[in-house]
Design a protein around this nucleic acid. Structure first.
Lengths: 214, 214
DNA sequence: ACCTGAACACCGTTCAAGT
DNA sequence: ACCTGAACACCGTTCAAGT
């Protein structure tokens, strides 16, 4: 009677949770594949279909895990509403950059899991406390989500396993013809740092300024 | 002597341009595949490797075509700098939503083609005209790019072939428990419209406000 | 110089069969 | 109830061979 973990079923050697956990350890530049996860678990690919309807279900579960890994509690506490949003946003960015291929998941899987809803609720609370109407708070919430995911995805693609320093150095080395693209050439030292946390914070800051002004 | 199209080579039945053009017509929810493009051209998959080094090259070419299709000339003219940015941004969003699977391309392929550079230069000019320093103009440019691509990608995933109206109606129908998520429940009528052009314009507007305040 | 046949190492998914 | 063997319909890519 003590070994009933979730349901009576006794023969079950796996679980959906275990599959998702295994998949979380398999990020390496690609989204974990059904066959890859099965191989890691020492099982045939089609075995996973006992626990998951399809690959999309795995992806949705991974999305929710990643949101939790960034620690939604960073949205609580007594720091300013802006600080709390920035802290969670940076944490999520870090999580998505550490697990290569994680950012891309958010663009094929809907964010409707429990952690997504929790993060949404807390962002709404923060924007409401900043004086926004419920409707504007909702719009601001999505604006922040778009920024974090869009930025993390582009940066993940650009890093592609290299460090931030390497990528910035490589971009700095590019020569822009000042005849053809004068402004691009003039601003290139900044443009070379587009995929850094500094840029991420700058644009998030600008976005929050614009939202707060509503 | 009149049939030399680009180079002397006489036997060549294809060209990289033709391959990319064929791929442009093949968007349907997935990124066009090497094998799919080859089949459409009535040729074996490996034939394409005569013209393209790999799939990544095809994707980079498609990204630049899509940027051009949105019409970078919308960034010119005598409308206000904000209007011009919003017009091009909305146009690019429309292009990316019309060609299903197009938005996802931007997250695997670098934006370093001629049209990407042109769009960048023009955005820099607009932000400079708004009073930003070269460095801030560069940061604002990337913030806008992140917003447009992030937003278009999330919306493309959410639409998945359905119309905006259908998706909004489906989200409106979702019931949120006001005990568990009071703010989410209260703001749900707005949250249901996250993937609309109205939301897109709202958050772009907020972002531009924040950038202009620098 | 260009195109192909054949192969390699992958995918997600289905379905009938075994235990 | 769970797992598997075998198969299906796909991928991108390589390489030796044909023209």
């Amino acid at each position: 009677m003590e070994e009933k973990t979730t349901r009576p079923g006794p023969k079950r050697s796996l679980s959906a949770e275990q599959i998702v956990t295994t998949a979380m350890d398999l990020f390496d530049g690609e989204t974990p594949s059904i066959r890859g996860v099965a191989a890691r678990l020492g099982v045939r690919p089609n075995t996973l279909y006992t626990y998951l309807p399809d690959r999309a279900a795995l992806e949705r579960a991974l999305v929710d895990r990643l949101l939790a890994e960034a620690d939604p509690d960073l949205l609580l506490g007594r720091r300013s509403w802006r600080r709390r949003i920035e802290d969670y946003a940076c944490s999520l960015r870090t999580v998505l950059l550490r697990r290569r291929g994680a950012a891309a998941l958010f663009h094929s899987a809907p964010m409707d899991g429990p952690n997504a809803m929790l993060v949404g609720e807390r962002l709404l609370a923060l924007f409401t406390s900043a004086g926004l109407s419920p409707s504007d708070a909702s719009r601001a919430t999505y604006a922040v989500i778009v920024h974090v995911l869009g930025s993390a995805t582009l940066t993940a693609a650009d890093l592609d396993g290299h460090t931030e320093e390497e990528v910035v150095a490589a971009r700095q080395a590019v020569q822009i013809d000042p005849e053809l693209l004068p402004l691009t050439a003039a601003a290139w030292s900044t443009t070379a740092t587009w995929n850094t946390e500094t840029q991420f914070r700058w644009s998030l800051h600008a976005l929050l300024d614009g939202c707060a002004a509503r």
